[in-house]
Design a protein around this nucleic acid. Structure first.
Lengths: 146, 146
DNA sequence: AATAAAATTGAAATTAATACAAAATTAAAT
DNA sequence: ATTTAATTTTGTATTAATTTCAATTTTATT
């Protein structure tokens, strides 16, 4: 894990989002900023239990719920049992490879928001999720077929 | 529930999708065609248990898994615990009202598929999910504020 | 230091989904 | 038509993500 943020930077990040910093909150934020893999609550827990031996799963859920409420993270729902969390709340799409399970980001242009023209709904957020096979897995499959 | 399909029509629908018709499959299909509310497995079960008293939840899951495999339904994942099922597999978006919980369809133009330009992924399906407040709930909120 | 407020923990409960063997039903073969 | 084989359905048990909530611990305030 790349360590690119100082404690002070992490604290400020939380404060700017109206969140009182605590050890767990700082560690969860640090994990999210340094591991942009759309982790599940359990991913975060499994990593941080090494750093905080008394850590409970509930604290991870509490922290993520707070982050969600304060707009620090968004959630992604990719037809899996587990919710994933994304520190990147800027408009972008997600692609899930059905072979390796990896989730990639992809750019989305604002024209998608044409949807918003409708007077029927007040849209607060939009998710664009694609499913298929990533380049790596495609190449692997092609090799095997030869 | 509007009854708009004959048993024969339902059977043909299944056969065309390479599914051997059975009582449960016909009833689940009928429910999906007549109740376009993006139901969960439990929604379907709760309705059909009245018609088939020995029905088991597992049969609903088996049936829906088969329908999914054969392309009769698609699933939607709306940040809820439960998966929803949609008999409309044609490209369209989903809007979930965060107040009343209702899920609406909305039209999506093909230009969204520009995403596909990317050489990185082979895209098999795309989900476009929006979240916010529906017209009805908005009007209700406005009334209460007066 | 005492008190109040907030955060964290841990155990239990909830529940959607899955696994799988037994039972029931349907189809095929004799 | 009866037996056999194949398929479908059922029911129980299990798994695992999330939630609930009271007790404990930590942090902030008087």
């Amino acid at each position: 894990m790349k360590m690119t943020y100082t404690i002070e930077q992490l604290k400020d990040y939380l404060k700017k989002h109206d969140i009182k910093p605590s050890t767990i909150r700082i560690k969860v934020l640090e994990y999210l900023l340094n591991n942009r893999i759309h982790p599940t609550a359990d991913d975060i827990y499994q990593y941080l239990i090494n750093e905080i031996p008394t850590l409970s799963k509930t604290s991870i859920y509490n922290t993520l719920d707070l982050f969600l409420e304060k707009g620090v993270v968004s959630t992604l729902s990719l037809k899996e049992k587990e919710l994933r969390y994304d520190i990147n709340t800027y408009l972008h799409g997600h692609f899930k490879c059905e072979v390796c399970g990896k989730v990639y980001d992809f750019p989305v242009t604002y024209k998608i928001l044409d949807v918003n023209e409708s007077k029927e709904f007040t849209i607060k957020s939009i998710d664009i999720n694609a499913y298929g096979i990533c380049k790596k897995c495609n190449e692997k499959i092609n090799k095997e077929e030869k």
